[in-house]
Amino acid sequence: MPPKTIPLLLALLSTALPLRAETPEDPLAPWRSGVTIKPVAPDQQRHSIHTYFNLSPESPDGKWVLFYTSTAVDGQHGEVRIRNRASGEERVLVENLDVEDAHRAACQQWICKGKSIAYHGERNGEWFVGVTDLDTGKERIHIPGRLSCWGQPNGDLVPLYGPHWNPGPHRDLELLNAATGEIQTVLTADAARAAYPDWFAKQYGDQPVSIFFPILSPDASKVFFKLASNGHTNGNPRSKGASAREGLICYNIAEKRFLFLRSSWGHPAWCPDGTTIVNTAFTLIDSNTGKENRVPGLPVCRGDHPSASPDGKLLITDSTMDKFEGKATDWGIFVADARGNSHVVIDQFDNSHGARSWRVSHPHPVFSPDGKRIYFNVSSGQWTQLYVAERQ
């Protein structure tokens, strides 16, 4: 899919307005026309995959883009690299890494104000979490028997959990301080069971559970997560039956109290206010109460990995296009006014090829830290490639 400028038709409404009336701001205006879309790393015979819709692959200072690369057909063995946005220079920060799938890749993320990256994967039969510093390119922290989920790029904390298919002794939520190497347990799985005993009994009975996929709020005062149980599985990490994963629990770390339980996970992401969670179908959840409100006048997407712009004025997601007069194999990138009633589709593409992983790569669109670019994965050809859409 070559670089392109997406022509979008505007319906211009002429309305008689009283003198001095102000036209409401249209946060979608920069995305309605003149959007340039191109591969981040063009002309490369390899997969290039950004990790997820919860965090941007662009460094906080806007200089680098972080992604996972692989020349394997299934995309499940490769490297973690950074690429200079201006010069195209690339640096390999992590080599010889096996990953669970091409869906989340190495869960690579910026931390420590962009001075380091964190990631997880398997090497020599050992699953581990690593931290590598940009200045040295050396793996400074190596934590065996854990996986990592999303912290915040300008913070030092990375949430850890035991592998969901075989957590061993690591069933609780830990926080790694990537600056010091200190690991602290902040919540136990037993405490979650005690807080919601009826739900746990219904979902898991007496099966052992572990905390899975914890995501920190922007100020790191809160976290939400799933629960997982491997009680009836064979422990194969690359299988849909690797574990039974249910629920969405939100917890206030600072105040040490549970906030709400939602029976289904969806695809949640924190909004920049640190209080609101955006979930599928453009649903906003108050993290303090669990109360939900759907943003009015926006489409219900399928696939649907939503997140918010850094200023909170826009929401973005991806969707298969069969509900929008397209093919089920086509996906679109939807940008919506967070107030509702208006959205645009900035790109549409075949997404049925790319890495032949058991869990395939999805677009997972996400904004840059300054809100001027949108990154997403495209699987329209042999290679899954990371693309960037940039407004004028």
Results as ranks from 00 to 15, higher is better:
P3A: 08
L10W: 02
L13A: 09
S14L: 14
A16N: 10
A16G: 10
L17P: 04
P18G: 15
L19S: 15
E22I: 15
D26N: 14
A29E: 09
P30G: 04
R32D: 00
V35N: 00
K38M: 05
A41I: 06
Q44W: 09
Q44Y: 06
Q45Y: 04
Q45K: 12
H50D: 02
T51H: 06
F53L: 00
N54V: 07
S56N: 07
E58M: 10
P60N: 01
F67M: 07
F67K: 06
F67R: 05
Y68D: 08
Y68S: 01
V73R: 15
Q76F: 09
H77T: 09
I82L: 08
A86G: 02
A86Q: 15
S87K: 09
E89V: 10
E95K: 15
L97E: 06
E100F: 07
D101T: 06
K113D: 11
G114N: 08
Y119C: 00
R123F: 07
G125P: 05
G125I: 01
G125K: 15
G125R: 15
F128G: 03
V129C: 06
D133P: 01
G137N: 12
G137L: 11
E139R: 14
R140T: 12
L147T: 04
L147W: 06
S148M: 12
S148F: 09
S148K: 08
C149E: 14
Q152A: 04
G155D: 09
P159W: 08
G162V: 05
P163G: 11
H164W: 08
P169E: 11
P169F: 14
P169S: 10
G181C: 08
A189F: 01
A195Q: 04
P197A: 03
A201T: 01
K202Q: 11
K202V: 03
P208H: 10
I211E: 00
P214E: 02
L216V: 01
P218T: 03
N234W: 10
G235H: 10
P237D: 08
P237S: 08
G241F: 14
S243N: 09
A244C: 09
A244R: 14
C250V: 13
I253K: 05
F258H: 05
L259I: 01
L259F: 11
S264E: 14
W265S: 01
T275A: 13
T276A: 06
F282M: 09
T283P: 04
L284V: 11
I285P: 00
D286W: 04
D286I: 08
S287H: 04
E292K: 14
R294L: 07
R294P: 06
L298W: 12
L298M: 05
V300N: 15
C301W: 10
G303I: 05
D304Q: 13
H305C: 04
A308P: 01
D311C: 12
G312Q: 08
K313H: 12
L314G: 07
K323N: 14
D330P: 02
I346G: 00
Q348P: 01
F349I: 03
D350F: 12
G354P: 03
S357Q: 08
W358F: 11
W358K: 00
R359N: 11
V360R: 15
V360N: 06
V360A: 07
P363R: 06
H364M: 04
P369T: 04
P369N: 09
D370G: 02
N377T: 06
V378G: 00
Q382C: 06
W383A: 03
T384C: 02
T384R: 03
T384W: 03
Q385H: 10
R391Q: 13
